[in-house]
Design a protein around this nucleic acid. Structure first.
Lengths: 340, 340
DNA sequence: TTGAAAGCGCTAACAG
DNA sequence: CTGTTAGCGCTTTCAA
């Protein structure tokens, strides 16, 4: 694509300024002039180079997206929501993933800033303690967090504490008293922490003792023997597991099954995220569902409001409703088969 | 970020040309000068505006990615592979999704071209008959296809025909004679077509009659009754299903289960894609696995070769090996329980 | 080794 | 309504 606005101007017999106007403010141009210029544009297959425009007008219509990973459908779904609105509104997305790595988070944000994105939508490990975000605030670069559960920054998420609380209450209502929370190895995210708080509160309120969260590497192919032992041995073995995310829940389910424990007969399982594939499992996974697509859309809306100055003055963080998908992986304690 | 190269030049006491050299060709600058300029850059927190650079030097280091959807992990995984290499090599990715819609494919490609991406990695519905790709060839914009199975254009994929052929042979080896192929509603992709060819060849070679592919809407929550009837009624009801992708296979499995058909006792199922979640199902889904991440990486490599002129002269399309994941959803015909 | 100056493609005053 | 002109931030001759 080598044709520039100059070529069009020459071809149409007008100045480049008029061509520019014909493109950006057609009403301010004489009808016949406009017509001629449009013909020229067609004939030359001209498409304005955004770089020139961006450089000059300081508007890139570029939004940076920073996500931990696309391997977890949670984020892929958010991105779907964002992409839908963005392309409808003429913005382009620049994507970087971080694998939850702090260095990569930093690198991504810096790269995107250097590229002059007009705003950022991101999910970081821990929003409250993130120095880069303060920097962004300070530099005046607009951003909105997704899934990060904090009141200190602009964020869209569910109420992780409450969702976990309700989920665990449900387990308790099914008669479970020994309920263990399982967390991924990257347990130190704001939301994981809040989910643990919700778990603890539900337990305590029922007069039960919350146990420390058990860390499980859910990238491993098999459940570690020590973990399996923890889940299945001893007088106080748990009868229900609250997993901090669905991927983890699914891996645990498979691990238990391979060890000949069946769900929910021997063990009840509750996940978090509400992945669509969870419903396709057998039995379908019970889970706390987050509206991922909507979270993406809402994050976009808020970012646009901030960029376009429609600062609605609403509180920083937006909490979207979660839902409890009942599934079939949670059974009543009375149905539980004794330890094998 | 308002500081420009001018500010740095003023601060360091040199011309902007020298600052530019200090950044882009440090060896051509006096050591002490370089030092001073670097200090200035640090002090001012200067980061060069890529727009200026890009406009001037006609290199954007931007790559456009066009994918049907992120809802299917197949594409999310490819993107992971691409992102890994891209960010390591200092390229940025601009992402657009199309939902398999031709208009959106066109729009995405045009937007990305206008943005002056240096290359394109895409997955389209049908590569051979795609007029836009000819246009790209003609315009000299480099691109590489992913998953599109064609020899006419630069592409990275598996041998879809062969993979399907092998999969169906395996079903036949298990004693199945009534094997039906199920396809999504967007059956008219090059790869879906080739998978059907593979299915047909395997059938014919075994002296069996291939049936027309049955279209199934796998976005629906339930299997349509007509489909279910097709799968379960009649003397010639299939004993095995070859599904053109894993998502479809999973939905069908659920549908059968809800209708009280069990897999593989009543029906064997073979998928295509090898989604990681398929292994977490119970029983684990048998599938033809495509190396998605590797496909993404390979596509990137080829694109880079083309962009950087290392045209290795190798044939246009690259075929990566697929694997057959045995799973447990395929049973021998002798185990099949009669129609209920 | 460094600087002056031109210009990438475009927009936005300011005149006319 | 249209043209002239001056940059946006940067790289790159060409001289010095």
């Amino acid at each position: 694509m080598k044709t520039t606005i100059k070529d069009v101007a020459a071809y149409a017999g007008f100045s480049i300024a008029t061509v520019s106007r014909a493109i950006n403010a057609p009403h301010s141009v004489n009808r016949v002039t406009l017509e001629k210029i449009r013909e020229a544009i067609d004939a030359l297959q001209f498409s304005p180079n955004p770089l020139g425009r961006q450089l000059r007008s300081d508007r890139t219509r570029l939004i940076g997206i920073v996500l931990p990973t696309l391997a977890n459908p949670v984020f892929a779904e958010c991105l779907q929501g964002i992409d839908e609105l963005a392309s409808a509104q003429g913005y382009r997305l620049m994507l970087m993933t971080t694998q939850y790595d702090a260095d990569r988070e930093r690198h991504a944000i810096e790269t995107l800033r250097a590229q002059r994105v007009e705003g950022l939508i991101l999910t970081v490990a821990d929003a409250d303690t993130h120095p880069l975000l303060d920097e962004l605030d300070h530099a005046g670069l607009r951003y909105v967090l997704m899934h990060n559960d904090t009141v200190r920054r602009p964020a869209v998420s569910v109420d992780n504490r409450l969702a976990a609380y309700e989920g665990v209450r449900m387990l308790i209502a099914h008669g479970h008293r020994h309920i263990l929370m399982l967390a991924g190895t990257l347990a130190e995210s704001d939301r994981a922490r809040l989910r643990y708080v919700g778990y603890s509160q539900a337990m305590q309120q029922a007069g039960l003792t919350p146990a420390p969260a058990l860390e499980v590497d859910f990238n491993a192919d098999e459940l570690a023997p020590s973990v399996l032992a923890h889940l299945t041995k001893g007088a106080t073995r748990p009868t229900a597991l609250f997993c901090s995310n669905d991927l983890l829940a699914m891996v645990v389910m498979r691990g238990l099954r391979r060890a000949s424990y069946s769900v929910p007969e021997h063990m009840s399982i509750l996940g978090f995220d509400g992945l669509a594939v969870g419903e396709l499992l057998s039995p379908p996974l019970a889970s706390l569902c987050t509206p991922n697509r909507e979270i993406g859309c809402a994050a976009w809306q808020r970012l646009m409001n901030r960029i376009e100055g429609v600062d609605d003055g609403s509180s920083l963080s937006l909490t979207l409703p979660h839902t409890l998908r009942v599934g079939e992986t949670v059974g009543a304690i009375s149905d539980i088969v004794g330890q094998r």
